[in-house]
Amino acid sequence: MEITPKAPIGRPRSFDAEEALERAMMVFWERGYQGASLTDLTDAMGITRKSMYAAFGNKDDLFRKALERYTEGPASYAARALEEPSAREVATAFLAGSVSTTTRPDCPAGCLGVQGSLAAGDSGRFAQDTLNAWRDDALTRLRQRFQRAVDENDLPPGADPELLARYLMTVANGIAVQAAGGATRSELQPVADAALRNWPPV
């Protein structure tokens, strides 16, 4: 009689890593780095801590991967905005994307990149440093795009690419904080429109 081998006892259940990461991103987005406990994360992901460590590493590693997913997903408006043909259109798309992303009804309010490390103490230093670098990278990309606009005469010669980039980032971050506090898209889009009225003419 042929004996069929049994499956190994205690074999870990398979799971969809992409879906699990998406759920982890949502937890970090809603609760921030420090507010998201390992239990919160594994419960949302539907896996054990052992499986989480095996698939994603520790909490810092998971946060970094979640931020990458956020950048490529909900926050991808920033990269798309840089491809707009004019500096004004870059600024318009960047702020419109900020308003849209931070007020999505199917996602946590605000921005993971802004709220992710707010009120974090020493235990949240990794998240603070990671998000500072994330925001600095966005600032650098905007500055380089506006420098190109100056070089191409799409912005006036006296325009300051650094100032314009920081201006946009400041407005976008403020929009995110307002959204986290309950402000709606209809309330925040006029703020973005008002900010663009100060944009330098060509």
Rank of each mutant, 00 (worst) to 15 (best):
M1I: 03
P5W: 04
P8R: 13
I9P: 01
G10E: 11
G10L: 14
R11K: 15
R11G: 07
P12T: 07
R13N: 08
R13G: 12
F15T: 12
D16Y: 10
A17W: 00
E22I: 00
E30L: 10
R31Q: 09
G32L: 08
Y33M: 10
A36K: 13
L38Q: 07
T42G: 08
D43Q: 12
T48Q: 06
K50M: 14
S51H: 00
Y53R: 10
Y53I: 02
A55L: 04
F56R: 07
K59L: 04
D60Y: 01
A66N: 08
E68W: 12
Y70T: 09
Y70A: 12
E72Y: 00
A75I: 04
S76Y: 12
R80M: 03
P85M: 02
E89C: 00
V90G: 04
V90W: 01
L95P: 04
A96K: 13
G97K: 05
S98D: 05
V99N: 06
S100V: 05
D106M: 03
A109M: 10
C111D: 12
L112V: 12
G113M: 02
V114H: 02
G116S: 04
L118C: 07
N132H: 06
N132F: 02
A133L: 09
A133W: 01
W134Y: 12
R135W: 05
A138W: 05
T140H: 11
R141N: 07
Q147A: 15
N153V: 00
N153C: 00
P157L: 04
P161V: 00
E162C: 03
A165G: 04
Y167H: 10
L168K: 14
T170W: 02
V171D: 01
A172Q: 15
G174E: 05
A179F: 14
A183T: 14
S186H: 08
S186R: 13
E187C: 01
A192V: 13
A195E: 06
P200T: 11
V202C: 02
